[in-house]
Write a protein that binds this DNA or RNA. Structure first.
Lengths: 131, 131
DNA sequence: ATAATACATTCTCATATAGGAATATGTAAA
DNA sequence: TTTACATATTCCTATATGAGAATGTATTAT
């Protein structure tokens, strides 16, 4: 089985860096395709294809104006990603506390070991040096 | 050019739904591979391969304990995704306001058009019915 | 030493890419 | 009604994938 289609959901659609750039660019106001091409320095067919993906998963809205197509980011479709990643927020907060505590511990060690050599070399029995 | 590698960054790594499930499962505490296999109902080699991807982009930490490998989500690595998606928060707030305002406008229309037929049919001059 | 357990890796394969080139479609201008 | 402009689609190709099956490796138990 290959990877899930880029059009299967917002997660897959935003995995492509160029598509994230397009979403950034279209967040403030709607823009015609040509502006995106010029701004991001991509080929026009590439941009059109990226926009199709973004449209299929609802990440952008389109509107025709004469012969141009005006695209705009649909921020609402990004919300689920923000919410999923947000469920981990409390964990990285915990980790930050632990890192802070470790750093403080380390400061004490550094002081008491001030004249020790090879401070940065690996210690054989350090469980954090598995690789 | 094919899609960017799943190991190229966290965005690509979490595009796979199974990997997101694994991250959810490993967020609270570290777990051996066997537990993930049992919990998610995947084949063991599949889980190992997903874990490798997650490890390569820093989304999980590993530690050996006897013959088991204990994996744990590294929430810190999810933070960039949360921050990128967060840059759109103010936009979806704006959109919500606009939607709310539109809904309120519509309520008035409904009342004044209360006995009109074909209320749900498209109106030719409705700019929201471009497609 | 041998077996059992827990994971990891390798192999094969069908498939969906992203970019480039060429072409098609749709709209406005002359 | 040609012509120009703006965008979309199609065709092509190399490549990375995820699953399944088989095998490899490391560690503990007997």
């Amino acid at each position: 089985m290959p990877r899930a289609a880029t059009t299967s959901d917002a997660f897959n659609a935003v995995a492509e860096p160029r598509r994230r750039e397009i979403l950034n660019y279209l967040a403030l106001q709607e823009r015609p395709v040509g502006d995106i091409v010029e701004s991001l320095g991509l080929e026009q067919p590439s941009v059109s294809k990226h926009l199709r993906v973004l449209r299929e998963v609802g990440l952008v809205h389109v509107r025709r104006d004469g012969r141009q197509m005006l695209y705009r980011t649909n921020a609402e479709a990004i919300r689920p990603l923000h919410e999923w990643t947000g469920t981990f927020e409390r964990f990285w907060r915990h980790q930050l506390h632990r890192i802070k505590e470790r750093a403080e511990e380390k400061m004490k060690t550094v002081r008491s070991d001030f004249n020790v050599r090879n401070f940065n070399s690996r210690r054989k029995d350090d469980p954090n040096n598995s690789h």
